[in-house]
Design a protein around this nucleic acid. Structure first.
Lengths: 209, 209
DNA sequence: TCGGTTGTGGAATGGATCGTCCATAACTTA
DNA sequence: TAAGTTATGGACGATCCATTCCACAACCGA
């Protein structure tokens, strides 16, 4: 990867990068998010980031690799948001955490006035069928979200906010489906008010003891 | 459009088309379904249908128009399936019809081993943001599905299978979200068994009187 | 200050793709 | 059978786009 590192010492030091990798990935994400994989040109990304093509390819490989990088980061962020909202905290507030998370997701979609949707959904729809990397990453993400939701549902059950007779695994899958579904129907044109109501309704129908 | 028709009589009769338009649209749909809009080449469609480019363009305009046609037909079919399953029938069986519909949608996704997903979701994800025609058509479709679901939920409420205190509009939106969500999580990699369970769970949590 | 290495960015390349064009085929009416 | 019209399908042109290439810049150790 880097001879200086590999050899353990440096003969000379190369010219350092003049750009912030993190920032470039952010701009690239904006582009892919806005226009999808096929719809985004490397020239667009070069323009948006201010980088020349040489730098772009030198730093990230090709278009596919760049997208994988952006997509992976996005998936990580999606799980992180869920972790922040869900993981940890007393059982007494588990139901509130679940409710907050579902409403947050609805709010995100509702406030997406540009109708860009979620890059996870968009990328999966466009590429999962033919790109094993994307398919694998999206599957991992779903599994991670499922686990977080299941844990939290179990906590809510312990505290008596959700019927203990219900299978937490199944309820988790249902909530995940609702969250991803809100994203889908939002992109399909349902109005923000309806999206918020869906989150409400979903939390409302969960079985109480 | 056609001088013979416009003039009301025919001087001569032109060479008739040698292809079945319906069949060509079906093949085109397969292509768009499999590889999306941007990922499908007109040459692919020409090859798949056996038509030359001249015939293709002569009959359907350009790639965009052809996709709109295919997409529109798909949306019509989606609503028709829902109508067959939902509309009409005694109130006593309304809940069963709803359940059957939701399970059917889950089964469709579960059995989609090629992971093609639904063209409605795929097309919407890829194009709705920049193509008003696609956005409008998908919104119409959602509205039509919502109406069908709401009507059926009301029927189930009349028969006492669903709590009358619940807002049928909201429950309809929830079920639509679940149906579209199943499609989304299925494409994201959740296994068929889980998808079927989600349909079960969703119907199970609906409020009973 | 100098040399060696990597970063930079824009021009060039090669391949792919959309849509058009046109010579020919097929068909019907007169 | 002849004439007029549209259908056919493959070749062609123009454009677009991912990637490579290269001359030059920047940096650091010596």
């Amino acid at each position: 990867m880097d001879d200086r590192v590999k050899n353990g010492y440096a003969e000379t030091m190369p010219r350092p990068r003049a750009f912030d990798e993190h920032q470039v990935l952010e701009r690239a994400r904006e582009q892919f998010w806005a226009t999808g994989y096929a719809g985004t040109r490397m020239d667009d990304i070069a323009q948006a980031t201010g980088l020349g093509k040489g730098s772009l390819y030198g730093a990230f490989g090709d278009k596919g690799k760049l997208f994988h990088r952006v997509f992976g980061d996005w998936c990580t962020a999606v799980v992180e948001v869920a972790e922040e909202r869900l993981a940890g905290g007393p059982d007494a507030e588990a139901f509130a955490r679940l409710s907050g998370y579902v409403h947050l997701m609805a709010e995100n979609t509702a406030s997406d006035t540009e109708r860009r949707g979620c890059l996870l959904a968009k990328g999966t729809a466009e590429l999962a069928q033919h790109d094993p990397t994307v398919a694998g990453r999206s599957a991992e993400t779903m599994t991670a979200l499922l686990t977080l939701l299941r844990t939290e549902i179990s906590a809510a059950q312990r505290h008596g906010d959700i019927d203990s007779a219900a299978d937490p695994e199944r309820l988790a899958a249902l909530l995940l489906t609702v969250v991803r579904g809100i994203e889908a129907v939002g992109k399909a044109g349902l109005d923000p008010e309806t999206l918020r109501n869906i989150a409400d309704t979903a939390m409302g129908v969960l079985p109480v003891p």
